[in-house]
């Protein structure tokens, strides 16, 4: 099973920006522990949702040939809570992308209201950490993951 925290892409401009949505549901078990009697979507998972939106945008920009790993959360500022029944919209924009890394800026909204700003640095790990070797196969963008993306029309637009 993949750990996926976005439901689908609604907009995807290759190498530039992507928008994904996530419907928060009380059927998600973790909400019952976070917090008992007062369910809110954990901020850490909102960061993960942005990391997936932006990470796929960065990966697709290089045809999913790089292993794109979240290296650093540059900034994460939250302005409100998200409750079950609400829909989160993640908008990620590529700021810079090079051989070794990429930087994205991201805006998260709920029903048009600003929820968070999350900026991330991604590493193309094969071009970094010189001397260390990683498995040859792309364990980030596996075939399963890519076929899931195809259903969102991602990676076809070039």
């Amino acid at each position: 099973m993949r750990w996926i925290w976005i439901d689908k892409f609604i907009d995807f401009e290759s190498g530039v920006r992507a928008t994904a949505i996530k419907n928060v549901s009380l059927a998600e078990e973790h909400l019952h522990d976070h917090f008992p009697g007062y369910p809110v979507m954990p901020a850490s998972l909102i960061i993960e949702g942005m990391a997936q939106t932006a990470g796929i945008l960065v990966g697709e920009a290089r045809n999913f040939e790089e292993k794109v790993i979240l290296a650093k959360v540059k900034r994460a500022v939250f302005r409100r809570e998200v409750r079950p029944g609400e829909r989160i919209t993640y908008e990620a924009t590529i700021d810079q992308v090079t051989e070794e890394a990429a930087v994205t800026t991201g805006r998260v909204t709920v029903e048009g209201e600003e929820l968070a700003q999350i900026d991330i640095v991604f590493s193309h790990i094969d071009n970094n950490l010189s001397g260390l070797e990683f498995p040859k196969e792309n364990f980030v963008f596996t075939d399963d993951f890519k076929s899931l993306l195809q259903s969102y029309n991602v990676g076809r637009g070039k």
Binding site: K72, T98, A101, V103, V121, S123, N128, S130
Partner: peptide
Amino acid sequence: SIDFLDIVFRLEKTFSIKIPKGELFPDD
């Protein structure tokens, strides 16, 4: 280590310069 990349990106943006890989922080 990853902060070095972030610093390079930010310097490029702040000063409108291009910093080729290994020029500021040679690691090879």
